[in-house]
Design a protein around this nucleic acid. Structure first.
Length: 259
DNA sequence: ATGGCGCACGGGGTGCGA
């Protein structure tokens, strides 16, 4: 079975590309970020026709997350319980899989703009709240997958310019410490379970021929709990949609699990 | 050089992303 994550930077614009990608990559579940639409505009019918149930958590203009699944989505949670965050950044659901019940958490992590900004303060608070909640979710769910646009490049090899961009947003010690703290809860970066090409990224700036020059960051991640690690068979970034006309600036990341 | 590009809102230019 396969689970994927993709920041699509407006589902209104990218729905045809999402449907085309699903037709070519019939994953069991797809987590989307940056819907940029309200739930009344979410394309439930088009996705149903493509074979997917969906749970959406959107808002006007910004943010918004959704989980698409070939099977039922149970125990859906929108945002971190108790956080009272006005921004729609988290949705979670439980899937019934051949491996058993699997808790899937999909996040659009805060960008943070710059380390000296108010938005960075929000990012740190948001990351702490997420961490605290994921800890409790892991206690309740042996098989758990945390995916999304983390807006963190975990290591220097996850950035096209780790020296020039040192201590800038996505690269700070504080952000990387939060990523490590998530791993310390008992999660594993599925992408790094395998030998990967050098200079592997999941996002490239629209400007300055970023994709053509492979000036990117690996900021979209799939973390799996230790109970799932033996079942992970592959994890890959699909660069193909980044070559589409009018692409998202992010590429999908796909994990393949046994059974 | 902090911009460039793309999207949403709205109907012009601004905010935001990463």
């Amino acid at each position: 079975m396969q689970i994927a994550t993709w920041n699509i930077n407006s589902l209104t614009v990218r729905l045809p590309q999402v449907l085309a990608w699903l037709a070519a990559n019939p994953v069991d579940a797809l987590c989307l970020q940056e819907l940029k639409l309200t739930d009344d505009k979410f394309p439930f019918d088009a996705l149903k026709d493509a074979g997917y149930e969906a749970a959406a958590f959107g808002q006007k203009t910004y943010n918004g997350v959704a989980i698409l699944s070939r099977g039922p989505l149970r125990d859906v949670v929108r945002n971190v319980p108790g956080s009272q965050d006005p921004q729609a950044r988290v949705i979670a659901a439980t899937l019934d899989t051949p491996l058993g019940a699997l808790r899937l958490i999909n996040g659009y992590f805060v960008n943070g703009q710059a380390p000296d900004s108010e938005k960075f303060v929000y990012k740190m608070q948001w990351l702490q709240a997420l961490q605290d909640w994921v800890r409790s979710e892991m206690a309740a769910h042996e098989r758990l997958v945390l995916v999304g646009d983390f807006n963190v490049a975990p290591e220097d090899r996850d950035s096209y310019d780790p020296v020039g961009l040192a201590d800038t947003i996505h690269h700070t010690q504080e952000e990387r410490a939060h990523f490590q703290a998530l791993l310390a809860l008992g999660l594993v970066d599925a992408y790094r379970l395998f030998e990967q090409p050098e200079k592997s990224y999941s996002w490239w700036d629209y400007r300055m021929l970023g994709f053509q020059k492979n000036r990117g960051l690996r900021i979209d991640h799939i973390l799996v709990s230790k109970a799932l690690q033996p079942a992970v068979r592959a994890c890959d970034i699909d660069r193909a949609p980044r070559k589409n006309p009018q692409p998202s600036d992010h590429a999908p990341v796909v994990v393949t699990l046994a059974a």
